[in-house]
Protein backbone atom coordinates (compact mmCIF):
# COMPACT_ATOMS: atom_id res chain seq x y z
CA UNK A 1 0.00 0.00 0.00
CA UNK A 2 1.48 3.31 -0.99
CA UNK A 3 1.85 5.89 1.76
CA UNK A 4 -0.46 8.20 -0.08
CA UNK A 5 -3.19 5.59 -0.36
CA UNK A 6 -2.71 4.63 3.26
CA UNK A 7 -3.01 8.23 4.33
CA UNK A 8 -6.16 8.58 2.25
CA UNK A 9 -7.69 5.49 3.80
CA UNK A 10 -6.81 6.66 7.27
CA UNK A 11 -8.37 10.02 6.57
CA UNK A 12 -11.47 8.30 5.24
CA UNK A 13 -11.56 6.09 8.29
CA UNK A 14 -11.32 9.11 10.56
CA UNK A 15 -14.13 10.77 8.65
CA UNK A 16 -16.36 7.75 9.00
CA UNK A 17 -15.44 7.26 12.61
CA UNK A 18 -16.28 10.83 13.50
CA UNK A 19 -19.28 11.09 11.13
CA UNK A 20 -21.96 10.57 13.77
CA UNK A 21 -20.45 13.09 16.08
CA UNK A 22 -20.35 15.80 13.45
CA UNK A 23 -16.69 15.27 12.92
CA UNK A 24 -15.99 15.79 16.59
CA UNK A 25 -12.25 16.14 16.99
CA UNK A 26 -10.22 13.36 18.56
CA UNK A 27 -9.26 14.37 22.07
CA UNK A 28 -5.68 13.83 23.11
CA UNK A 29 -4.19 14.67 26.45
CA UNK A 30 -0.54 15.44 26.71
CA UNK A 31 0.39 15.12 30.35
CA UNK A 32 3.64 16.78 31.26
CA UNK A 33 5.70 15.74 34.25
CA UNK A 34 6.50 19.38 34.69
CA UNK A 35 5.38 22.50 32.86
CA UNK A 36 7.74 23.95 30.32
CA UNK A 37 11.30 22.90 29.62
CA UNK A 38 12.12 19.66 27.90
CA UNK A 39 8.63 18.26 28.49
CA UNK A 40 6.95 21.12 26.65
CA UNK A 41 9.54 20.87 23.89
CA UNK A 42 8.83 17.19 23.35
CA UNK A 43 5.05 17.77 23.51
CA UNK A 44 5.28 20.52 20.94
CA UNK A 45 7.27 18.31 18.59
CA UNK A 46 4.66 15.56 18.93
CA UNK A 47 1.82 17.94 18.27
CA UNK A 48 3.55 19.42 15.25
CA UNK A 49 4.14 15.96 13.80
CA UNK A 50 0.51 14.90 14.24
CA UNK A 51 -0.92 18.24 13.05
CA UNK A 52 1.20 17.95 9.94
CA UNK A 53 -0.94 15.02 8.83
CA UNK A 54 -4.22 15.73 10.60
CA UNK A 55 -4.41 19.50 10.73
CA UNK A 56 -7.12 20.72 13.06
CA UNK A 57 -8.52 17.26 13.68
CA UNK A 58 -7.21 16.86 17.18
CA UNK A 59 -8.37 18.53 20.33
CA UNK A 60 -5.19 18.89 22.37
CA UNK A 61 -5.06 19.32 26.08
CA UNK A 62 -1.50 20.00 27.08
CA UNK A 63 -1.07 20.45 30.79
CA UNK A 64 0.78 19.11 33.75
CA UNK A 65 -0.28 15.65 34.81
CA UNK A 66 -1.57 17.04 38.09
CA UNK A 67 -3.84 19.53 36.28
CA UNK A 68 -5.16 16.90 33.92
CA UNK A 69 -6.10 14.69 36.84
CA UNK A 70 -8.59 17.40 37.88
CA UNK A 71 -10.38 17.07 34.55
CA UNK A 72 -13.69 15.21 34.51
CA UNK A 73 -13.84 14.25 30.85
CA UNK A 74 -11.99 11.32 29.43
CA UNK A 75 -9.69 11.64 26.43
CA UNK A 76 -9.43 9.14 23.61
CA UNK A 77 -5.60 9.13 23.76
CA UNK A 78 -3.14 9.98 26.46
CA UNK A 79 0.44 10.95 25.95
CA UNK A 80 2.60 11.07 29.07
CA UNK A 81 5.78 13.04 28.89
CA UNK A 82 8.28 11.95 31.53
CA UNK A 83 8.20 9.40 34.28
CA UNK A 84 6.02 11.17 36.81
CA UNK A 85 3.41 11.91 34.12
CA UNK A 86 3.39 8.23 33.23
CA UNK A 87 2.86 7.32 36.85
CA UNK A 88 0.12 9.94 37.31
CA UNK A 89 -1.77 8.91 34.19
CA UNK A 90 -1.58 5.24 35.07
CA UNK A 91 -2.90 6.00 38.52
CA UNK A 92 -5.60 8.27 37.10
CA UNK A 93 -7.00 5.54 34.89
CA UNK A 94 -6.26 2.68 37.22
CA UNK A 95 -9.93 2.22 38.15
CA UNK A 96 -11.14 2.72 34.61
CA UNK A 97 -12.25 -0.60 33.03
CA UNK A 98 -11.50 0.80 29.55
CA UNK A 99 -8.63 3.19 29.99
CA UNK A 100 -7.54 5.20 26.93
CA UNK A 101 -4.36 4.04 25.17
CA UNK A 102 -1.24 5.57 26.69
CA UNK A 103 1.85 6.65 24.82
CA UNK A 104 4.79 7.50 27.05
CA UNK A 105 7.82 9.44 25.93
CA UNK A 106 10.97 10.99 27.32
CA UNK A 107 11.49 8.18 29.82
CA UNK A 108 14.36 5.74 30.06
CA UNK A 109 13.46 2.18 29.24
CA UNK A 110 14.11 1.06 32.80
CA UNK A 111 11.74 3.64 34.22
CA UNK A 112 9.04 2.82 31.68
CA UNK A 113 9.21 -0.90 32.29
CA UNK A 114 9.12 -0.43 36.02
CA UNK A 115 5.71 1.27 35.76
CA UNK A 116 4.01 -0.10 32.68
CA UNK A 117 1.61 -3.05 32.76
CA UNK A 118 3.23 -5.64 30.48
CA UNK A 119 -0.16 -6.98 29.42
CA UNK A 120 -1.32 -3.61 28.13
CA UNK A 121 2.03 -3.10 26.41
CA UNK A 122 1.64 -6.42 24.59
CA UNK A 123 -1.90 -5.48 23.63
CA UNK A 124 -0.71 -2.24 22.04
CA UNK A 125 -2.58 -0.25 24.67
CA UNK A 126 0.56 1.22 26.18
CA UNK A 127 3.73 2.10 24.37
CA UNK A 128 6.73 4.37 24.61
CA UNK A 129 9.54 6.14 22.88
CA UNK A 130 12.48 5.72 25.20
CA UNK A 131 14.92 8.43 26.00
CA UNK A 132 17.95 6.18 26.09
CA UNK A 133 19.88 4.87 23.14
CA UNK A 134 19.85 1.26 21.95
CA UNK A 135 22.94 -0.66 23.12
CA UNK A 136 23.87 -1.54 19.54
CA UNK A 137 23.98 2.15 18.59
CA UNK A 138 26.17 3.01 21.54
CA UNK A 139 28.63 0.25 20.76
CA UNK A 140 28.64 1.18 17.10
CA UNK A 141 29.58 4.74 17.97
CA UNK A 142 32.43 3.51 20.15
CA UNK A 143 33.69 1.42 17.29
CA UNK A 144 33.40 4.25 14.78
CA UNK A 145 35.24 6.70 17.01
CA UNK A 146 37.94 4.22 18.08
CA UNK A 147 38.63 1.88 15.20
CA UNK A 148 41.24 -0.08 17.15
CA UNK A 149 38.96 -0.47 20.16
CA UNK A 150 39.98 -3.47 22.24
CA UNK A 151 37.69 -3.31 25.21
CA UNK A 152 34.77 -1.13 26.18
CA UNK A 153 34.00 -0.62 29.85
CA UNK A 154 30.49 -0.29 31.24
CA UNK A 155 29.50 0.42 34.82
CA UNK A 156 26.04 -0.75 35.79
CA UNK A 157 24.16 -0.38 39.03
CA UNK A 158 21.77 -2.61 40.89
CA UNK A 159 18.84 -1.34 38.83
CA UNK A 160 20.53 -1.35 35.44
CA UNK A 161 22.40 -4.64 35.81
CA UNK A 162 19.66 -6.33 33.85
CA UNK A 163 20.86 -4.42 30.77
CA UNK A 164 24.11 -6.35 30.77
CA UNK A 165 22.62 -9.07 28.62
CA UNK A 166 21.47 -6.69 25.88
CA UNK A 167 24.87 -4.98 25.84
CA UNK A 168 26.60 -8.34 25.61
CA UNK A 169 24.35 -9.44 22.79
CA UNK A 170 25.09 -6.28 20.82
CA UNK A 171 28.80 -6.63 21.55
CA UNK A 172 28.85 -10.21 20.24
CA UNK A 173 27.15 -9.08 17.05
CA UNK A 174 29.69 -6.31 16.55
CA UNK A 175 32.74 -8.21 17.74
CA UNK A 176 33.52 -5.85 20.62
CA UNK A 177 34.96 -7.05 23.91
CA UNK A 178 32.97 -5.70 26.80
CA UNK A 179 34.01 -5.35 30.36
CA UNK A 180 30.98 -4.84 32.54
CA UNK A 181 31.30 -4.07 36.22
CA UNK A 182 28.28 -3.96 38.45
CA UNK A 183 28.55 -1.40 41.21
CA UNK A 184 27.12 -2.63 44.47
CA UNK A 185 26.33 -0.25 47.31
CA UNK A 186 29.20 2.19 47.79
CA UNK A 187 31.60 0.12 45.71
CA UNK A 188 31.83 2.62 42.86
CA UNK A 189 35.43 3.35 43.63
CA UNK A 190 36.48 -0.29 43.67
CA UNK A 191 34.52 -1.08 40.52
CA UNK A 192 36.15 1.81 38.72
CA UNK A 193 39.62 0.82 39.89
CA UNK A 194 39.25 -2.70 38.60
CA UNK A 195 37.50 -1.64 35.39
CA UNK A 196 39.66 1.22 34.14
CA UNK A 197 42.94 -0.69 33.76
CA UNK A 198 41.16 -3.18 31.51
CA UNK A 199 39.41 -0.89 29.04
CA UNK A 200 40.08 1.67 26.31
CA UNK A 201 36.81 3.54 26.53
CA UNK A 202 34.23 3.99 29.25
CA UNK A 203 30.54 4.12 28.40
CA UNK A 204 28.35 6.00 30.86
CA UNK A 205 24.96 4.46 31.52
CA UNK A 206 21.99 6.41 32.83
CA UNK A 207 21.75 4.57 36.14
CA UNK A 208 21.61 7.38 38.68
CA UNK A 209 23.00 5.10 41.37
CA UNK A 210 26.27 5.07 39.38
CA UNK A 211 26.29 8.20 37.23
CA UNK A 212 24.91 11.28 38.90
CA UNK A 213 25.98 14.88 39.25
CA UNK A 214 28.01 13.99 42.32
CA UNK A 215 29.89 11.04 40.91
CA UNK A 216 30.44 12.10 37.32
CA UNK A 217 33.23 14.53 38.17
CA UNK A 218 35.21 11.84 39.90
CA UNK A 219 34.54 9.16 37.32
CA UNK A 220 35.57 11.49 34.52
CA UNK A 221 38.67 12.56 36.39
CA UNK A 222 39.72 9.02 37.21
CA UNK A 223 39.19 7.91 33.63
CA UNK A 224 41.03 10.86 32.19
CA UNK A 225 44.01 10.34 34.47
CA UNK A 226 44.42 7.09 32.58
CA UNK A 227 43.68 8.84 29.29
CA UNK A 228 40.52 6.76 28.94
CA UNK A 229 37.79 8.68 27.13
CA UNK A 230 34.19 8.51 28.24
CA UNK A 231 31.01 8.39 26.17
CA UNK A 232 28.12 10.12 27.89
CA UNK A 233 24.38 10.13 27.30
CA UNK A 234 23.57 13.84 27.36
CA UNK A 235 25.12 17.06 26.11
CA UNK A 236 26.02 17.90 29.70
CA UNK A 237 28.50 15.03 29.59
CA UNK A 238 30.43 16.48 26.69
CA UNK A 239 30.40 19.88 28.35
CA UNK A 240 31.72 18.36 31.57
CA UNK A 241 34.57 16.62 29.80
CA UNK A 242 33.33 13.39 28.25
CA UNK A 243 34.86 12.98 24.83
CA UNK A 244 31.60 11.95 23.16
CA UNK A 245 27.94 11.96 23.92
CA UNK A 246 25.14 10.19 22.18
CA UNK A 247 21.60 11.32 22.88
CA UNK A 248 18.27 12.25 21.37
CA UNK A 249 16.85 15.70 21.89
CA UNK A 250 13.33 16.15 23.29
CA UNK A 251 12.27 17.28 19.81
CA UNK A 252 13.63 14.12 18.22
CA UNK A 253 11.85 11.98 20.80
CA UNK A 254 8.64 13.99 20.48
CA UNK A 255 8.65 13.71 16.71
CA UNK A 256 9.09 9.95 16.88
CA UNK A 257 6.24 9.71 19.37
CA UNK A 258 4.14 11.88 17.06
CA UNK A 259 4.73 9.41 14.25
CA UNK A 260 3.62 6.55 16.48
CA UNK A 261 0.50 8.34 17.63
CA UNK A 262 -0.36 9.30 14.10
CA UNK A 263 -0.17 5.66 13.05
CA UNK A 264 -2.43 4.57 15.90
CA UNK A 265 -5.00 7.37 15.65
CA UNK A 266 -7.28 5.55 13.21
CA UNK A 267 -7.96 3.15 16.05
CA UNK A 268 -5.06 0.79 15.51
CA UNK A 269 -2.88 -0.65 18.24
CA UNK A 270 0.12 1.40 19.32
CA UNK A 271 3.39 0.20 17.84
CA UNK A 272 5.57 -1.57 20.40
CA UNK A 273 7.87 0.55 22.60
CA UNK A 274 10.93 1.69 20.75
CA UNK A 275 14.17 3.62 20.86
CA UNK A 276 14.30 7.08 19.38
CA UNK A 277 15.28 6.90 15.75
CA UNK A 278 17.03 10.24 15.43
CA UNK A 279 20.01 11.16 17.58
CA UNK A 280 22.84 13.61 18.04
CA UNK A 281 26.53 12.88 18.50
CA UNK A 282 28.41 15.46 20.55
CA UNK A 283 32.19 15.80 20.65
CA UNK A 284 34.18 17.77 23.20
CA UNK A 285 36.75 19.28 20.88
CA UNK A 286 39.16 20.21 23.66
CA UNK A 287 39.26 16.65 24.99
CA UNK A 288 39.49 15.31 21.48
CA UNK A 289 42.48 17.52 20.79
CA UNK A 290 44.11 16.59 24.07
CA UNK A 291 43.80 12.91 23.23
CA UNK A 292 45.05 13.65 19.71
CA UNK A 293 41.90 12.41 18.08
CA UNK A 294 40.20 13.93 15.08
CA UNK A 295 36.52 13.52 15.68
CA UNK A 296 33.88 15.48 13.85
CA UNK A 297 30.35 15.47 15.24
CA UNK A 298 28.47 15.60 11.96
CA UNK A 299 30.67 12.99 10.36
CA UNK A 300 30.28 10.53 13.22
CA UNK A 301 26.51 10.98 13.29
CA UNK A 302 26.34 10.48 9.54
CA UNK A 303 28.44 7.32 9.66
CA UNK A 304 26.38 5.98 12.53
CA UNK A 305 23.14 6.57 10.64
CA UNK A 306 24.52 4.84 7.61
CA UNK A 307 25.54 1.83 9.63
CA UNK A 308 22.11 1.62 11.23
CA UNK A 309 20.09 2.15 8.09
CA UNK A 310 22.27 1.23 5.18
Amino acid sequence: MSPRLRRLLIAAFLCIMTYGSRAAPVSVWIALSDMGGVYAEAAEALRTEVERVYPGRIEWRIASAAQLRQTRSEPQWVVAVGGSAQRAMQEHFAEDPTPPPLLVMLVPRLAFERLADPGRVRAGQVSAVYLDQPPARQLMLAQLAFPGLRSLGILLGAESRGQAASFEKAAREQGIRLNIQVVAGDGLFGALQSLLPEVDVLLATPDPAVFNSQTVANILAAAYRRRIPMIGFSPAYTRAGALLSLYSTPTQVGTRAGEMLRQALPGLALPPPQWPREFVVGVNQDVSRSLELNLVEAQLAQQLRQKERP
Binding site: S33, G37, V38, G82, G83, L106, V107, P108, L110, A111, R114, L131, D132, E159, S160, P206, D207, P208, F211, N212, S213, V216, A217, L220, A221, Y224, F233, S234, A236, Y237, R239, A240, G241, Y247, N284, D286, V287
Partner: peptide
Amino acid sequence: ASEHGYFEDLPVVL
Protein backbone atom coordinates in the same frame (compact mmCIF):
# COMPACT_ATOMS: atom_id res chain seq x y z
CA ALA B 1 16.33 5.56 36.75
CA SER B 2 14.41 8.55 35.44
CA GLU B 3 14.73 11.13 32.74
CA HIS B 4 16.30 13.61 35.15
CA GLY B 5 19.80 12.26 34.65
CA TYR B 6 19.55 13.11 30.95
CA PHE B 7 18.76 16.72 31.51
CA GLU B 8 20.70 17.65 34.61
CA ASP B 9 23.66 19.95 34.39
CA LEU B 10 27.05 18.61 35.33
CA PRO B 11 30.02 20.57 36.64
CA VAL B 12 32.70 21.14 34.02
CA VAL B 13 35.40 18.69 35.03
CA LEU B 14 37.87 18.73 32.20
